[in-house]
Write a protein that binds this DNA or RNA. Structure first.
Lengths: 357, 357
DNA sequence: AGAGGCGGTCGAATCGATTCGACACCCGAG
DNA sequence: CTCGGGTGTCGAATCGATTCGACCGCCTCT
């Protein structure tokens, strides 16, 4: 069990120098033979590769290479939540997919750092990386930013709070939500409530208090809220503990209890909205006849609900791709600038005019 | 935009040697001051750290460190599907969460390699890593195994086909399914069908053909199938294109069309089973009165379905943790052995005796 | 008082590759 | 015949840290 059967059991890897010696060339030439940079006679290259095969040499050691070249071929993604939590959000998954695809095409690999604060310091400080993408909206990422920029690692923010010197990819959260709110207004709604994304790292539930609104912890959530309040300045809001259906359910129950005259609920994500639909239905309210419900994201959610949710569609995969391209550009020394995507209102069958009376 | 505001703009990082010089000590001592290994006078350490602060030195370069120590602090996870696909499966997510948690605690970071075959060769060959976990059941991972073991990277398999010299973490897929099948038998079912996990990389749908059964591409799926067939040798099976609700829906429709007398459907995952429930209900069949449906995994699925699904519960997070621990053990030079978890039948309200007649 | 041990520091070797400038050689053109 | 230029190869420096052995006081124990 110690040595897999398919290994020659010597236990220590051959080095480029050994391969070169065996092939009767210098290390420099052997290096060229592997990397393909610089001119090498075909016959020489063959000899080197043959020697490598004989020694079971699998190519240059990434560690040594990366010391010398200053590149590790790794781009990190820093998230706030642990995987189990973050990846239940389809938006995170698609975003990550876009990132992975783009950097993969460029020959980079993806390092996943879930910033469990203290602990991740380890990863942030010690892991090799050529660039890092910061996911999430909280200013708690601050220490991460400090550590990484001290390490001179190019940083790109995604859905992050704008910050001096941090290039960003974002969407027009506020404008998108405003358009949705206008849609509600046009339908004749007056009492609209909001279920927001989590506002702090502890994922505290409850009515949105002034404290949160001031401390701008959760940039995305507050932006989306502003969009709604541009149209309905007094719209009450409840904070959910996560972008999850069951959290939408919990929050919507609270809203329905606290705000009797409600005719519409906006979830700051599609999952939250779906939870709200469940909450409405469990009280015998029909959607959209008795109450209108809309979300945000345009997530394609597998096998759920008979409704086509009215929502604000954002290009999540593209956002990931763009962020990755920004990182690659930064690595190439090209200028990096902010990118903002626009969202699009998609009207489904979960919104309608409120009943009169 | 070129240099973030919080950086001193010199553009080149200080080195340990410079810090040491500035502190008036040797590089060796400075190194000790940072790593904490070896004795350093408090006053000296202070001086070193102060010098580091003045030079904005963020600690030793991971690249150099990893060349010298032979460790990169990175453990890779190799998956077959691209992120968007793989992460829709809650089992993959929880598994990964377990892995990330465990290796994070040990100070390692997680490198995500989605093995898009040709392309990932890049990552597999060039990315620094101290160990790798191979996720998935397909023999297509073969090239990955070859490349990595040539690089002397310790390998651990998860849900992989048993293979000489590849330590593994697995569950008793077959026994678990057999117990579920026995449950059906006890209830009096005779016509039981199976919806299987994907059987090849192309995610081909359709009735399970002999070809697939021979080529043992998808180890897990075939094991789970065997478990059912231990009890119902002739149980028909349809292959789904993914572990997704909508795939379960599609497959179950096909089954209901093709097998009129069916009284029970086993999904090889909970998502597939949920799809099957939807398929049944859209035909007016009540679950479990008209048809019994069960799954596998014991996934906690957010906000779905009014049923408590009968299922075979597997310890997914624990599986991840165990795999991670195996990798860590291998790195520590400790002996590594296979680990098998056992599953547990959890009876919900989606299974009952078939109606007489 | 001498020996041994320990805390603290330093030099030098080392990890395994990449890369740049130099060099030798051969060819064709002038 | 010689010079210029391209091709293929090599030596040596370099990337930035870690680590091992040596060294030097100084304290303690006998």
């Amino acid at each position: 069990m110690a040595t897999p059967a398919n290994l020659p059991g010597d236990g220590t890897r051959a080095t480029l120098a050994q391969v070169a010696a065996r092939a009767g060339v210098s290390a420099s030439t052997a290096s060229l033979a592997f990397s393909g940079a610089g001119p090498v006679a075909d016959e020489t290259r063959e000899r080197v590769l043959a020697a490598a095969r004989e020694l079971d040499y699998g190519g240059p050691d990434p560690r040594a290479r990366s010391l010398r070249t200053g590149r590790s071929g790794i781009i990190a993604v820093v998230m706030e939540d642990r995987i189990r939590v973050a990846f239940r959000d389809p938006m995170v998954v698609t975003l990550l997919d876009g990132i992975a695809d783009e950097i993969g095409n460029a020959g980079y690999s993806l390092l996943l750092l879930t910033d469990s604060l203290e602990r991740a310091e380890g990863g942030l400080r010690d892991a090799p990386m050529d660039a890092a993408l910061l996911l999430g909206c909280s200013t708690d990422l601050d220490p991460a930013v400090r550590v990484l920029s001290q390490r001179q690692v190019p940083l790109i923010g995604v859905e992050a709070e704008p910050r001096q010197g941090l290039p960003m990819v974002d969407i027009d959260n506020r404008a998108g939500m405003r358009r949705l709110a206008e849609h509600f207004a046009e339908l004749g709604h007056e009492r609209v409530a909001v279920i927001t994304l989590p506002m702090d790292r502890d994922h505290t539930r409850g009515p949105l208090t002034q404290v949160w609104q001031d401390s701008s912890v959760a940039y995305t959530g507050l932006e989306r809220l502003s969009g709604v309040r541009d149209v309905f300045p007094d719209a009450p809001a409840v904070v959910a503990a996560g972008s999850l259906i069951e959290e939408g359910l919990i929050a919507a129950r609270a809203l329905l209890d606290a705000e009797p005259g409600l005719t519409a609920i906006v979830g700051q994500s599609d999952l939250l909205a779906l939870g709200a639909i469940q909450a409405a239905e469990e009280r015998g309210l029909r959607v959209p006849q008795d109450i209108s419900i809309a979300g945000f994201d345009g997530a394609r959610i597998d096998g759920l609900s008979r409704h086509r949710l009215t929502t604000v569609v954002q290009p999540s995969v593209e956002k990931g791709r763009a962020a990755a391209r920004l990182a690659l550009a930064a690595l190439a020394g090209e200028p990096v600038e902010n990118i903002a995507f626009t969202t699009e209102l998609r009207i489904g069958d979960t919104t309608a005019s409120p009943r009169r009376g």
